[in-house]
Computed example of a mutant assay.
Amino acid sequence: MKIAFYGSSLLSSYWNGAATYYRGMLHDLSRRGHDITFYEPDAFGRQQHRDIEPPDWARVVVYPATEDALRGVMAEARQADVVVKASGVGVFDDALIEGVMDAARADALRIFWDVDAPATLAEITPQPDHPLRRTLPKLDFVLTYGGGPPVVAAYEGLGARRCVPVYNAVDPATHHPVPAEPRFRADLSFLGNRLPDREARVEEFFLRPAALLPERAFLIGGNGWESKAMSGNVRHLGHVYTREHNAFNTSPLAVLNIARDSMAQTGWSPATRVFEATGAGACLITDDWLGLDMFLKAGEEVLVARDGQDVAEHVATLTPERSRAIGEAARRRILQSHTYAQRGAEVDTLLRAALARKDAA
Rank of each mutant, 00 (worst) to 15 (best):
V84D: 07
D56L: 01
R50T: 14
G281W: 05
L109E: 09
L70E: 11
R273D: 06
L219Y: 04
E53P: 10
A229L: 08
R194N: 08
Q127H: 15
T37S: 15
P252L: 02
T317K: 00
L10H: 05
L219M: 08
G99A: 15
S13L: 03
F206W: 02
A18G: 09
P137L: 05
A4L: 09
D307S: 12
D348S: 13
P149Q: 10
P137F: 13
R46C: 14
I334P: 06
A106M: 07
D68V: 14
G157Y: 11
G88E: 15
R343Q: 14
F190V: 08
A210T: 09
E53T: 13
D35Q: 14
P131C: 09
Y63R: 09
Q127F: 15
R59Q: 13
A271G: 04
I258W: 03
V315K: 09
A108V: 12
W15P: 04
R133I: 00
Y340L: 13
K358A: 11
K85E: 14
G238K: 05
H236K: 07
P126Q: 05
L292A: 12
L292F: 06
T242R: 12
T135L: 14
K228C: 06
P54L: 12
V234Y: 01
R331N: 07
D56M: 01
S337C: 01
E199P: 00
G267L: 04
V166S: 06
W268G: 08
P179A: 12
N246L: 01
V151K: 11
V152T: 11
D293R: 04
F5E: 11
E328I: 00
A361G: 15
L303V: 07
S9T: 07
S337M: 04
D102N: 14
R161Q: 13
S227M: 05
S269D: 06
V274L: 07
Y39H: 04
E156H: 13
H27T: 11
Y241F: 06
V100F: 09
C163G: 11
L318P: 01
L96D: 09
T135I: 12
F190Q: 03
G327A: 01
A86T: 15
V311Y: 05
P41I: 03
V84S: 02
Q48D: 15
S87P: 11
P182M: 02
D293K: 00
